[in-house]
């Protein structure tokens, strides 16, 4: 059996992006003001695992770190077809940067025990650092391939994948266990089904606090985060319209100058 762990993050619903506020003190997003959803790219990670489960003997564990409300998104992944859910939930985990998040998730993965493949979305829609997947790999001391857009071969002990580059892709063969971070090109995530939701009734979510992971408080959450956010603010995007008058040549000349003035040309 291939053991896959899919790491998922509860993020503020991107559809409600205009309502997301920043905590002026902690410089973090105030996640409780908008509904939490599964990070969009983590859905691609889930879909990759589910497609493999349809073909092979695969056990899927879903792992998330977050507030108690993040249990809903773990449940959602169970409804999609994952076998087991784990939520790392403790006030001590709050305010974690990418490193502290990766450290906590890695400790969760070690506690789960059996794993051959760890799949993460390439980035989260809120933090968007793209670091968590590679940092998990570094902490667990296993290989990582980022930006996977196609799984070419998925043998029991090694995978061949295509990973996106700016102007092409890398074809990589990796020995398992390994971490893969995936892009939206990999697949189209399935939607929830009513029967999947019914099946999830009997699937349990295991919740682990800091004491269950056996890690010091200084290593997790805000205390364990080397990142210092000096400032975080919302930007306001405004549109302005200007009607350009004159002949065709005059309009073109004016437009070129205007674009140069704003730094586009």
């Amino acid at each position: 059996m291939l053991n896959i762990i899919v790491c998922v993050k509860a993020v503020p619903d991107p559809k409600e992006a205009c309502n997301i506020k920043i905590d002026p003190h902690s410089k973090t997003l105030m996640r409780c003001d908008v509904p939490l959803v599964v990070n969009p790219l983590d859905k691609n990670a889930m879909e990759a695992a589910l497609q493999l489960k349809e073909q092979f003997d695969v056990h899927i564990s879903v792992l998330s770190m977050g507030p108690p409300e993040a249990g809903n998104i773990v449940k959602e992944c169970l409804a999609l077809g994952a076998d087991q859910g784990f939520l790392l939930c403790d006030p001590a985990f709050g305010g974690a940067d990418a490193y502290a998040t990766a450290f906590t998730l890695a400790k969760g993965i070690e506690k789960i025990g059996a794993y051959d493949v760890i799949i993460c979305g390439m980035a989260s829609s809120d933090g968007s650092t793209e670091w968590v997947g590679p940092e998990i790999a570094a902490i667990l001391n296993i290989p990582v391939v980022t930006m996977v857009k196609e799984i070419v071969e998925s043998d029991r002990d090694r995978w061949k994948v295509k990973a996106s580059l700016e102007n092409g892709y890398r074809l990589m063969q990796v020995k398992l266990p390994a971490v893969f971070t995936v892009t939206r090109d990999l697949n189209t995530p399935r939607t929830l089904s009513f029967s999947g939701i019914i099946k999830a009734r009997t699937k349990e979510i295991t919740r682990w606090a800091i004491s269950d992971l056996g890690v010091p408080a200084e290593a997790v959450g805000l205390k364990g985060s080397p990142t210092i956010v000096s400032e975080l603010s919302s930007t306001e995007s405004k549109r302005e319209a200007e009607i350009i008058a004159g002949t065709r040549e005059e309009k073109a000349e004016f437009l070129v100058q205007k674009l140069a003035d704003v730094g586009v040309l």
Partner: peptide, 19 residues
């Protein structure tokens, strides 16, 4: 219930993607 909220999400996703 939490399950009913998930039903709503499932139906909403279905409608937006398939209808």
């Amino acid at each position: 219930t939490e399950e009913q909220e998930m039903f709503r999400k499932a139906a909403s996703e279905f409608a937006e993607t398939s209808v």
